[in-house]
Computed example of a mutant assay.
Amino acid sequence: MFTGIIQAVGKVAAVQAGNADARLLIDAADLDLSDVAPGDSIACNGVCLTVVALDAASFSVDVSAETFRCTVGFPEHSLVNLEKALRLADRLGGHLVSGHVDGVGEVLRFDPVGDCFELLIRAPGELAKFIVTKGSVTVNGVSLTVNRVDGDRFSINLIPHTLEHTNLHALQPASPVNLEVDMMARYAERILNYRDQT
């Protein structure tokens, strides 16, 4: 479990491809790995991955074909938002994030508005119903508040701090992004649908 509050931005230093899977080496020099051990989880661009090896400045993870299928993937040399798993004593500054990406959205617009930027994203149709005005959504692992919703499109205001401390500053129109909707919305839909089917 995560919060969507990014702790560092790393880089995919190497991709060792298998048949359909891959092992990634993540350069994480800006992330404190002193309390991380093999078997721990680190969210990389919102994807919960298991550490299989590490040293003081990097760690390795295995990525399955299924993960590649439902995310934007991990191109070599790409920047990735990093967050270590939530501990029970930690502050919950964002919202509860599972690290299980629901789908890939598309950036439609990324425009300056004063000192901030407005990010407009198109969500896959099956996810759009879970995104609500003033609700939470995770974009590339970053917990964000939805400003407006129009059908399958939603907008977010990005403050300078977010742009400085995540990889979202590199987005541009047509960029794909990992999306995870608020899990509470998913539970609510399941409860309502189950009740209607009984």
Rank of each mutant, 00 (worst) to 15 (best):
G4F: 04
I5E: 08
I6A: 13
A8K: 03
V9W: 08
K11E: 10
K11F: 03
K11L: 08
K11G: 04
V12W: 11
A13Q: 14
A13L: 15
V15W: 06
Q16H: 15
Q16M: 14
Q16D: 15
A17Y: 11
G18C: 02
A20H: 12
D21W: 11
D21F: 02
D21T: 13
A22T: 07
A22P: 10
A22H: 06
R23H: 08
R23F: 05
L24H: 10
L24G: 08
D27C: 13
D27R: 11
A28C: 14
A29F: 01
A29K: 12
A29I: 05
D30P: 06
D30Y: 03
D32Y: 11
S34P: 06
S34G: 14
D35T: 14
D35I: 07
D35K: 15
A37C: 04
A37M: 11
D40S: 13
I42V: 15
C44V: 15
C44R: 02
N45C: 09
G46L: 09
G46S: 11
V47D: 05
C48E: 11
C48N: 10
L49E: 04
V52L: 13
A53I: 00
A53C: 04
D55T: 02
D55A: 09
A56E: 15
A57T: 14
S58K: 06
S58W: 06
S58F: 04
S58P: 05
F59H: 02
F59I: 05
S60N: 09
S60V: 07
S60D: 12
S60K: 09
D62M: 09
D62G: 13
V63E: 11
V63S: 10
S64Q: 11
A65K: 04
A65G: 03
A65H: 06
A65D: 13
F68T: 07
R69Y: 03
R69K: 15
C70G: 00
V72E: 03
S78L: 05
V80S: 07
V80D: 03
V80I: 12
E83I: 10
K84M: 12
L86M: 15
L86R: 01
R87G: 08
L88K: 00
L88Q: 02
A89R: 13
D90L: 08
R91D: 07
H95L: 10
H95K: 04
L96K: 07
V97E: 01
S98V: 00
G99A: 07
V101Q: 10
V101F: 07
D102K: 03
D102F: 06
G103M: 07
G103F: 03
G103T: 10
G103L: 07
V104C: 09
V104G: 05
V104L: 05
L108E: 08
L108F: 00
L108A: 02
R109S: 15
F110N: 12
D111Y: 00
V113Q: 13
G114H: 01
C116E: 11
F117I: 02
F117T: 06
L120N: 00
L120R: 12
I121K: 01
P124L: 04
G125V: 01
G125R: 07
G125C: 02
E126T: 09
L127W: 05
A128G: 07
K129T: 10
K129N: 04
K129Q: 15
K129I: 13
K129A: 15
F130A: 14
I131S: 12
V132I: 13
K134W: 00
K134E: 09
